[in-house]
């Protein structure tokens, strides 16, 4: 489904250079849930943003569902329509109601009729447990509710893959659970997911594979079991000892 080979990314400032990604290779199969872990600044957010072309990898190749997204001839909008993205800061459209947030892209990008988009939108809002808020504006929702709407918004495009960029990091602790529950349900339904997260419990429970990154490079890849109980690399052990 997703095949990343040797991508690198360097952010250039006026006098600084930050190597965010160094020779990263990773693979995500259809239906698989991959959780990317790592200390802050390890490049995991840059990695997931590269998958959606929000950051552009300097070199290497990224193939999603058979399409090379770094190929200049690729219409990135078509690829993005198939790849859902959930952001740390939700990024809901504040001038649109919850339902309008969910129906906008299907209508504009997929040219769905208003009725169809609405019907699908209501289904999704019900799925994420927020149907009663369909007609309110995002600023009247709690963080957890907003993030669930953001997930519904991404799902409305009926994507083949969902990318989650630290979806619970901006939430108050008591709201983390409701968002993780929605994500767990999605995983159970067989959605292909890449999740950048600090939620060890989620990784242990839901992930098929865990990718551990540090200083822009993939350090270790393995099943959660292997990763949490029997990590091979010193760096991984250190990280786990700090976090658990």
């Amino acid at each position: 489904m997703i095949d990343v080979k040797n991508i690198s990314k360097t952010f250039k400032g006026h006098s600084t250079e930050v190597k965010a990604l160094v020779n990263v290779t990773a693979k995500v199969d259809k239906g698989e849930v991959v959780v990317v872990l790592g200390p802050s600044g390890s490049g995991k957010s840059t990695f997931i943003r590269c998958l959606n072309y929000l950051n552009v990898a300097d070199e290497g190749s990224i193939v999603i569902d058979g399409i090379d997204i770094l190929d200049p001839k690729t219409d990135i909008n078509k690829v993005r329509a198939e790849v859902g993205m959930v952001f740390q800061s939700f990024n809901l459209f504040p001038h649109k109601t919850v339902l309008e947030n969910v129906t906008l892209a299907p209508m504009v990008v997929r040219k769905k009729s208003k009725e169809d988009a609405k019907k699908k939108g209501m289904e999704l809002l019900e799925k994420v447990g927020i149907l009663d808020k369909a007609d309110v504006y995002p600023d009247q929702l709690s963080g957890g509710q907003q993030q669930r709407v953001a997930i519904a918004r991404a799902l409305a495009m009926e994507p083949k893959v969902m990318l989650f960029d630290e979806p619970t990091s901006a939430l108050d602790p008591e709201m983390v659970g409701e968002v993780l529950d929605v994500m767990k349900n999605l995983a159970r339904e067989g959605m292909t997911m890449v999740v950048v997260s600090h939620e060890m419990g989620f990784a242990r429970e839901v992930a098929d594979r865990v990718v551990f990154m540090d200083e822009g490079a993939v350090v270790e890849v393995g099943t959660p079991e292997h990763f949490f109980t029997n990590p091979t690399h010193e760096r991984t052990k250190l990280f786990l000892s700090q976090i658990l």
Binding site: E82, V83, M85, F87, N91, F93, V108
Partner: peptide
Amino acid sequence: RGQTEAARSLGMTYVK
């Protein structure tokens, strides 16, 4: 900037 990113990540063109 997150607004543009959210819109673009849903497959909208720059104009849309």
